[in-house]
Protein backbone atom coordinates (compact mmCIF):
# COMPACT_ATOMS: atom_id res chain seq x y z
CA UNK A 1 0.00 0.00 0.00
CA UNK A 2 1.20 3.49 -0.75
CA UNK A 3 1.32 6.43 1.63
CA UNK A 4 2.39 10.02 1.28
CA UNK A 5 5.18 10.96 3.67
CA UNK A 6 6.18 14.48 4.50
CA UNK A 7 9.93 15.02 4.56
CA UNK A 8 12.13 18.04 5.10
CA UNK A 9 15.58 18.11 3.57
CA UNK A 10 18.40 20.44 2.58
CA UNK A 11 18.95 20.12 -1.17
CA UNK A 12 22.08 21.14 -3.01
CA UNK A 13 21.21 22.91 -6.26
CA UNK A 14 24.24 22.72 -8.57
CA UNK A 15 25.13 25.92 -10.43
CA UNK A 16 24.45 24.51 -13.91
CA UNK A 17 20.75 24.23 -13.07
CA UNK A 18 20.37 27.86 -12.01
CA UNK A 19 18.83 28.72 -15.37
CA UNK A 20 15.91 26.29 -14.92
CA UNK A 21 12.90 27.10 -12.72
CA UNK A 22 13.72 26.33 -9.10
CA UNK A 23 11.01 23.73 -8.54
CA UNK A 24 12.21 21.76 -11.60
CA UNK A 25 15.75 21.72 -10.31
CA UNK A 26 14.60 20.71 -6.81
CA UNK A 27 12.39 17.96 -8.18
CA UNK A 28 15.28 16.55 -10.20
CA UNK A 29 17.66 16.66 -7.27
CA UNK A 30 15.13 15.01 -4.95
CA UNK A 31 14.45 12.28 -7.48
CA UNK A 32 18.15 11.68 -7.84
CA UNK A 33 18.50 11.29 -4.10
CA UNK A 34 15.32 9.44 -3.13
CA UNK A 35 13.77 7.57 -6.05
CA UNK A 36 14.02 3.79 -5.74
CA UNK A 37 15.67 4.06 -2.32
CA UNK A 38 14.69 2.59 1.02
CA UNK A 39 14.48 4.92 4.00
CA UNK A 40 15.04 2.94 7.17
CA UNK A 41 11.85 2.39 9.16
CA UNK A 42 9.83 4.25 6.58
CA UNK A 43 9.71 2.23 3.36
CA UNK A 44 10.58 2.32 -0.30
CA UNK A 45 10.36 5.76 -1.87
CA UNK A 46 8.82 5.72 -5.34
CA UNK A 47 8.81 9.33 -6.40
CA UNK A 48 8.18 12.87 -5.24
CA UNK A 49 4.49 13.75 -5.08
CA UNK A 50 4.61 17.52 -4.56
CA UNK A 51 6.70 20.29 -3.03
CA UNK A 52 5.11 21.98 -0.04
CA UNK A 53 7.55 24.68 0.92
CA UNK A 54 10.74 26.07 -0.62
CA UNK A 55 12.92 28.28 1.56
CA UNK A 56 15.48 30.79 0.36
CA UNK A 57 18.73 29.35 -0.88
CA UNK A 58 21.83 29.54 1.27
CA UNK A 59 25.45 29.68 0.22
CA UNK A 60 28.46 27.91 1.64
CA UNK A 61 31.93 29.35 1.29
CA UNK A 62 33.94 27.46 -1.31
CA UNK A 63 30.95 26.01 -3.14
CA UNK A 64 29.13 27.56 -6.07
CA UNK A 65 25.95 25.69 -5.40
CA UNK A 66 23.01 26.97 -3.41
CA UNK A 67 21.47 24.99 -0.57
CA UNK A 68 17.73 25.10 -0.30
CA UNK A 69 15.61 23.84 2.56
CA UNK A 70 12.59 22.04 1.10
CA UNK A 71 9.50 20.43 2.54
CA UNK A 72 8.01 17.87 0.19
CA UNK A 73 5.74 14.86 0.07
CA UNK A 74 6.76 11.62 -1.59
CA UNK A 75 5.05 8.35 -2.43
CA UNK A 76 6.31 5.63 -0.11
CA UNK A 77 5.50 1.97 -0.46
CA UNK A 78 4.97 0.54 3.01
CA UNK A 79 2.66 -2.37 3.58
CA UNK A 80 1.06 -2.61 7.01
CA UNK A 81 0.76 -5.72 9.15
CA UNK A 82 -2.00 -7.94 7.92
CA UNK A 83 -2.34 -6.34 4.52
CA UNK A 84 -3.26 -8.64 1.67
CA UNK A 85 -1.11 -8.27 -1.41
CA UNK A 86 -0.90 -10.04 -4.72
CA UNK A 87 2.35 -10.87 -6.44
CA UNK A 88 4.14 -13.37 -8.58
CA UNK A 89 6.39 -16.12 -7.28
CA UNK A 90 9.97 -15.41 -8.22
CA UNK A 91 11.74 -18.22 -6.52
CA UNK A 92 10.98 -21.11 -4.20
CA UNK A 93 13.58 -22.05 -1.61
CA UNK A 94 13.82 -24.66 1.08
CA UNK A 95 12.99 -22.25 3.86
CA UNK A 96 9.47 -22.74 5.09
CA UNK A 97 7.52 -25.34 3.24
CA UNK A 98 8.80 -28.64 1.93
CA UNK A 99 10.11 -28.19 -1.60
CA UNK A 100 9.33 -30.84 -4.18
CA UNK A 101 10.56 -30.39 -7.74
CA UNK A 102 11.40 -26.79 -6.93
CA UNK A 103 7.83 -26.11 -6.07
CA UNK A 104 6.05 -25.69 -2.80
CA UNK A 105 3.45 -28.31 -2.07
CA UNK A 106 0.45 -27.77 0.08
CA UNK A 107 -1.33 -30.97 1.02
CA UNK A 108 -4.90 -29.83 1.19
CA UNK A 109 -6.07 -33.38 1.76
CA UNK A 110 -4.70 -36.83 1.04
CA UNK A 111 -5.76 -36.95 -2.57
CA UNK A 112 -5.28 -33.40 -3.75
CA UNK A 113 -1.88 -31.79 -3.87
CA UNK A 114 -1.65 -28.15 -4.68
CA UNK A 115 1.60 -26.83 -6.02
CA UNK A 116 2.99 -23.33 -5.82
CA UNK A 117 5.22 -22.93 -8.82
CA UNK A 118 7.46 -20.16 -9.96
CA UNK A 119 5.89 -17.24 -11.76
CA UNK A 120 2.45 -18.00 -10.47
CA UNK A 121 0.14 -15.33 -9.16
CA UNK A 122 -0.06 -15.56 -5.40
CA UNK A 123 -1.92 -13.78 -2.65
CA UNK A 124 -0.35 -13.33 0.75
CA UNK A 125 -0.65 -11.55 4.08
CA UNK A 126 2.14 -9.34 5.44
CA UNK A 127 3.50 -10.67 8.74
CA UNK A 128 6.69 -8.80 9.41
CA UNK A 129 9.01 -6.25 7.89
CA UNK A 130 12.75 -6.14 8.34
CA UNK A 131 14.97 -3.16 7.74
CA UNK A 132 18.63 -4.11 7.45
CA UNK A 133 21.55 -1.76 7.69
CA UNK A 134 23.60 -2.20 4.53
CA UNK A 135 26.47 0.13 5.18
CA UNK A 136 29.59 -0.94 3.30
CA UNK A 137 31.91 -2.96 5.54
CA UNK A 138 35.25 -1.92 4.08
CA UNK A 139 36.65 0.93 2.05
CA UNK A 140 37.01 -1.42 -0.93
CA UNK A 141 33.30 -2.05 -0.88
CA UNK A 142 32.47 1.59 -0.33
CA UNK A 143 34.34 2.69 -3.42
CA UNK A 144 32.48 0.10 -5.47
CA UNK A 145 35.51 -1.92 -6.54
CA UNK A 146 34.30 -5.11 -4.95
CA UNK A 147 30.69 -6.16 -4.69
CA UNK A 148 29.80 -8.03 -1.51
CA UNK A 149 28.60 -11.54 -2.21
CA UNK A 150 25.58 -12.29 -0.10
CA UNK A 151 23.86 -8.96 0.02
CA UNK A 152 20.96 -8.71 2.41
CA UNK A 153 18.20 -6.55 1.03
CA UNK A 154 17.73 -3.26 2.89
CA UNK A 155 14.03 -3.90 3.18
CA UNK A 156 12.58 -7.38 3.42
CA UNK A 157 9.03 -8.49 4.00
CA UNK A 158 7.91 -11.73 5.55
CA UNK A 159 4.51 -12.89 4.42
CA UNK A 160 2.35 -15.92 4.89
CA UNK A 161 -0.35 -17.74 2.95
CA UNK A 162 -1.67 -19.63 5.94
CA UNK A 163 -5.30 -18.60 5.87
CA UNK A 164 -8.41 -19.11 3.88
CA UNK A 165 -8.35 -17.36 0.52
CA UNK A 166 -4.55 -17.13 0.48
CA UNK A 167 -2.07 -18.80 -1.78
CA UNK A 168 -2.27 -19.15 -5.52
CA UNK A 169 -5.06 -17.07 -6.95
CA UNK A 170 -6.00 -19.89 -9.31
CA UNK A 171 -7.00 -22.14 -6.37
CA UNK A 172 -9.81 -19.88 -5.33
CA UNK A 173 -11.38 -18.88 -8.60
Amino acid sequence: MFVLSEIQDLVRIPPHTFNTPIHHAINDELHKKYANKVISNLGLVVSVWDLLDINDGMLKPGDGASFVDVKFRCIVWKPFMGEILTGWVKECTAEGIKPVELAWVWKADEENELYIESNEKIRFRIEEEIFANIKPKSSVEASGIEEPKNKTPPYAIVASCQAEGMGCVSWWD
Binding site: F2, V3, E6, Q8, I75
Partner: peptide, 16 residues
Protein backbone atom coordinates in the same frame (compact mmCIF):
# COMPACT_ATOMS: atom_id res chain seq x y z
CA UNK B 1 16.83 14.84 6.33
CA UNK B 2 13.95 15.02 8.72
CA UNK B 3 10.75 13.04 8.48
CA UNK B 4 7.93 15.34 9.48
CA UNK B 5 4.97 13.08 8.97
CA UNK B 6 5.29 9.40 8.22
CA UNK B 7 1.75 8.87 7.06
CA UNK B 8 0.19 12.00 5.71
CA UNK B 9 -2.29 10.31 3.43
CA UNK B 10 -3.06 6.96 1.89
CA UNK B 11 -2.86 6.48 -1.85
CA UNK B 12 -4.57 3.85 -3.90
CA UNK B 13 -2.79 1.87 -6.58
CA UNK B 14 -4.80 3.73 -9.18
CA UNK B 15 -3.51 7.12 -8.09
CA UNK B 16 0.11 5.98 -7.98
Amino acid sequence: MKILNERDQFLSNYEV
